[in-house]
Nucleic acid binder design. Structure first.
Lengths: 352, 352
DNA sequence: CCGAGAAGCTAATAAATATTGCTAAACTTA
DNA sequence: TAAGTTTAGCAATATTTATTAGCTTCTCGG
């Protein structure tokens, strides 16, 4: 009658976790509930969480479909309030996939508030959700709240240092490679790069991909072709001007679409025609990309697929080690990346 | 039939179900787990399941006293998956306000699927949420599912024909008036309007506001100054060109910011300088508005305030009749609406 | 009509977890 | 260094669900 193979002789209880961690059952409970009332030292918390992971502790009946009334639910928790559509698309993917199994999705935005996070996780524990997706707007390393350990959890667009949870992030480096390779294939050789702010993972990795693709094509990375931006139109605008003051590249790869907007403008001010006299490549496939003139060739963040993967992982077989999956970022070809050689995309094609 | 005063966030326990079904807690446990060959009569089983359904009982892990654990929750349900940031801002406002009272917010996106809506409402009924916000991405009339009546509900950015629920929508007409008055105050007289698609409430009402402000200033509405757009940059671009082919207005009021983007571009193509030789006004205060050059003066949709109002209404006194509130849309002055007069506030007949 | 089962349920109890205080140590301050 | 305060953890306890061991009644063969 039991679906799980791992039922074994005895189910793992808090008491066993406590024994292994050398603390009391109460302490384990406190750590897992993230209750503020109780103060637990970092060392003890670490030991407890380690024991939880090693023993694979789950509160009773986790994963078992509630036989009584009530629907199955997956909760997804975002660190920041999502003003970008990225979040929405992940949610959509997650939801699609979950609904196939008749599972609802509940979204919560915590604003990074630890108290809020704890309250939500506790509520979801009481609701006995199928699993929890802990998601970040910006791709980055996170320190998930301890209480996440009591759930079947997946990290979306982020990852934890200890690798305690399964996670999925975009393959930014390979995306940067893809973009650069597209420019190379269009015949460009002097390809400039406008980075984001250096503290952002995404910016770094896209640049690494750029450099790697150049090297793979037998070209050297020319530092004078690299400018620092700020992921905003203003930064793209300024960086493009600085770039053109110094040299004239065949193509400009902007580390995100917003900077490409500023880049377009600066290029027009210099009398260039994007897609004809010079090429531009973006990253992110934000909505604005398709409305630019010419429409911007860019790289798509696979947010939908990442969301789907989370649902599949939570609803799927319980074993699955805590691996980090990097998901491919495909290019969206629209025309701006052509140069003198090709591309007759001068007209706005029925702009949608 | 409702058991009167809010018994607070106490979760339904087996004991309560047993009481209602007139059996013992053990019997409920047997019925729900159906484990052994314990024999339960069909009649008793039916009674128990009925009580479970009526009370919305859902099992919780063994040994979880509900003291403070039963967090209070407000649910918000969007008809479409939110790719626009509007939704996010409403949610933020709702959440801020709710969290002041220690209440969590759970978001769900139904994609307009009636089955999904029903499933969510049923789940929330079982959870005993404080209230439900039924929200729409596009301002419009909706037909809320019947099950919504079981909750304390508010409609956000939409309204029902029968006026059964309290609702809050932006005062689009007055926003259109405000925008137009700003242009009048900047000294413009020949003010053009680029509408959205005519089936959209928002577009119509913004135009009504435009017309009303003109009349209030003693001007007549000149149909040759009105062009139909499509709420996209392409439409703004085309409409601006059509407009300039026919006549030359002092100012162009675009029914949304996206069209203003296309409008800017067309004006540049015509050799105009936005904010100096000609004025442009947007609507929505989308993010792009502040990145345009010059930054776009626009009208803000009060999504945050609307969200806050929903929380306050749900958490507030229960009487409050089912009224429709139209919330003011303030202007965001950035510079694009000035013209040759350079921002001197010429006296406007009928204004102030 | 009697007694062995069986059917249908409950009381009592076990197991798991959450929470309230309390205590001992460490750390401050006077 | 003594007194107070904070920190870190635990024992004890409360609350819920699962399970065991019956307790009643009903049925039916003899």
């Amino acid at each position: 009658m039991d679906n799980g193979a791992q039922d074994g002789p005895t189910r793992v209880t808090m008491k066993e976790v406590a024994l292994r961690a050398g603390v009391s059952q109460s302490t384990v409970s406190f750590v897992l509930n993230g209750n503020d009332d109780m103060r637990i030292s970092a060392e003890t918390r670490r030991r407890v969480l380690k024991a939880v992971a090693e023993l694979g502790y789950r509160p009773r009946g986790a994963g078992r479909p509630p036989k009584a009334a009530g629907s199955r639910v997956i909760g997804i928790m975002f660190d920041e309030v999502a003003t970008s559509p990225f979040a929405a698309i992940s949610i959509e993917g997650l939801q699609e996939e979950a609904w196939k199994a008749g599972v609802l999705v509940e979204v919560v935005m915590t604003g990074g508030d630890r108290g809020y996070e704890a309250a939500v996780l506790r509520k979801w524990a009481a609701d006995r959700v199928e699993g929890v997706v802990y998601a970040s707007i910006l791709t980055r390393r996170v320190e998930p709240p301890d209480a996440l350990s009591r759930h079947r959890a997946v990290l979306l667009n982020c990852y934890d240092a200890e690798g305690r949870f399964a996670s999925v992030v975009p393959a930014e480096r390979r995306g940067g490679e893809t973009a650069t390779r597209l420019l190379l294939e269009a015949g460009h050789r002097r390809i400039a790069f406008i980075s984001g702010e250096s503290w952002m993972d995404a910016s770094d990795q896209r640049m690494e991909g750029y450099e790697r693709a150049l090297r793979a094509a037998g070209l050297t990375v020319d530092p004078s072709l690299i400018e620092e931006g700020n992921f905003l139109p203003s930064g793209g605008h300024a960086a493009t001007h600085r770039l053109l003051d110094r040299t004239r590249p065949d193509a400009i790869f902007c580390a995100n679409d917003l900077m490409a907007v500023g880049c377009y403008e600066a290029l027009k001010e210099r009398g260039e025609t994007v897609g004809q006299s010079i090429a531009v490549m973006g990253y992110d496939d934000q909505e604005i990309a398709q409305h630019l003139n010419p429409p911007l060739t860019t790289v798509l963040l696979p947010h939908r697929e990442m969301g789907q993967w989370c649902a599949a992982h939570i609803l799927g077989a319980p074993d699955a080690g805590a691996t980090m999956l990097r998901m491919e970022c495909p290019a969206v070809v629209r025309g701006s990346h052509f140069g003198r050689s090709g591309g007759s995309f001068a007209e706005v094609p029925g702009a949608r």
